[in-house]
Amino acid sequence: MTALDVRPAARRGPVARWRILVPAAGLAVIALVSLVGPFFLVDPLDVGAGEPLSGPSGAHLFGVDQYGMDVLSRVVSAGRIDLLLALSASAIALVAGIPLGAFAGYRGGAWDQGLLRVAESFQAFPTMLLAMGVTLALGPSLPNLVAVIAVVNIPLYMRLARSAVIPLREADFVLAARCAGRSTFQIVRQHIVPNIAQVAIAQFSVTCAWAIQVLAGLSFIGIGVRMPTAEWGSMIRQGTDHMVTGQWWLSVFPGLAILLTVLALNQIAAAARRWGGPS
């Protein structure tokens, strides 16, 4: 132990630009490939694409699954459904959760306590298990899956917005607006919500990452997106039947797709948070 670094931790330099550019570029590539890739690849539902269970080769870069479907083509087209569902679920959670939390934090009192307790009750459930329960109750259609993932994430945004609003409640510009006779609703909408946009954006990225994991998890246990539709989680499930016999390409590639996408989203969130944080 030669040097114990005792310089204050808060005195970090400005966020290096590559910290946000690299993951953002990675995510852009993933989104672009999922969007336009399917036009250049074989049909992901074509069961005659190749010899079933044949490994990666020149003709099938990611190999062929047990039904004879091309794994590369399925991984790429699964990106569409995973990204789309995750994005819309996170957007709904944000649009519903931020105003609710802002309202609770601004109003204070019984409203605040009531909404906070509701949010806490939802957060008491392990996310995956709550998602399982709600999916069973609603039935596993695509819109319902979006709803489920949105519901489990709304409390997160509520609490985030609430804690960001409380210090703003007594800020001069808010007091001025109140003196000018603005209603609570107007103040929250015009003055409070724009001020918490930054934390919301960092959280949005994290929520998208979580949404992909939850969606893939639900599909993995068989109540999310179902075969034959290509989805990363259900593809991994498909591969578990063959992993002990060595057909690794069935589940390794869709898993890598999840890992890279989630990693990029998490890194963007981390960079955004540091950018906004105290420097």
Partner: peptide, 11 residues
């Protein structure tokens, strides 16, 4: 934090 645990399990 990014890896889905069910996939890690299969790997």
């Amino acid at each position: 934090v990014s890896v889905p645990e069910f996939w890690l399990a299969t790997v």
